[in-house]
């Protein structure tokens, strides 16, 4: 596995590249386990409220455009694919391809945020944003408000993670582009790739739970 890896400078206290890479990946996976529980708190809330207000959730979900969610999933899956390829290129020290694929990933990520932003915008118009401006004609407006509370907090938290991911891609990409070293530093891209894939995975659960409850 180390034979193909591009050169990575050693950081104290490591003395071997493979050892350092293993440790970095292990650390990132632990962080991702942490993130699972961070989102997990909200997924738990979702489970409980969907159980106790399932009818209100069905009514509320009718106001979701499933095709936008589907499109977003498509965009995100593709960006996950380009990111995985980018990581592969980084490991082989192929800087040109790496930068190209990072750019595609970045554009797809930004498109995702754009679509999501459009949805948020239309929700404002329909008075579906929780808080004092919330208005919902249904049998259990409170339960429906909970649906949108969860929708905004969970997708909002996800968008925040996307935003951080985009910033990191930008930062590492520019750094690599202008660094005098010929090859890229693969470890940071592997770690970034793990993060990006994790953010994809979160969305894979958000999509059915918010867009496929009651599609029409």
């Amino acid at each position: 596995m180390t034979a193909e890896a591009a050169a990575e400078p050693l950081n104290f206290p490591f003395k071997e590249a493979a050892h350092q890479r293993e440790s970095a990946l292990f650390g990132m996976w632990i962080f991702l386990a942490t993130e699972v529980l961070f989102f997990g708190g909200m997924f738990t809330a979702y489970t409980v409220y969907r159980y106790s207000h399932w009818q209100a959730f069905q009514e509320a979900a009718r106001h979701q455009e499933w095709y936008l969610g589907c499109l977003n999933t498509l965009v995100l899956l593709t960006s996950g694919f380009t990111m995985a390829l980018a990581v592969e290129c980084a490991r082989r020290g192929n800087r040109g391809w790496l930068l190209g694929l990072l750019t595609i990933t970045w554009v797809l990520g930004a498109a995702f945020l754009g679509i999501e932003g459009y949805e948020y915008h239309s929700k404002f118009g329909e008075h579906l944003v929780p808080g004092s401006g919330f208005h919902f004609d249904g049998t259990d407006p409170g339960g429906s408000e909970l649906f949108f509370v969860l929708y905004f907090t969970m997708t909002g938290m996800h968008m925040f993670h996307m935003f951080v991911g985009l910033m990191l891609i930008l930062f590492f990409g520019v750094w690599t582009r202008f660094s005098p070293r010929e090859t890229a530093m693969p470890n940071r891209f592997e770690v970034l790739g793990l993060y990006w894939a994790f953010v994809d995975i979160v969305w894979l659960f958000l999509y059915p739970l918010f867009y496929l409850v009651h599609p029409r």
């Binding site: 409980v48 106790s52 209100a56 808080g131 339960g143 909970l146």
Partner: peptide, 17 residues
């Protein structure tokens, strides 16, 4: 901060959660 009540019993939320 924003008055979006996730644990708010007034809209059916549960403080026990």
């Amino acid at each position: 901060g924003f008055g979006i009540g996730i644990f708010d019993p007034r809209i059916g939320g549960d403080p026990l959660l």
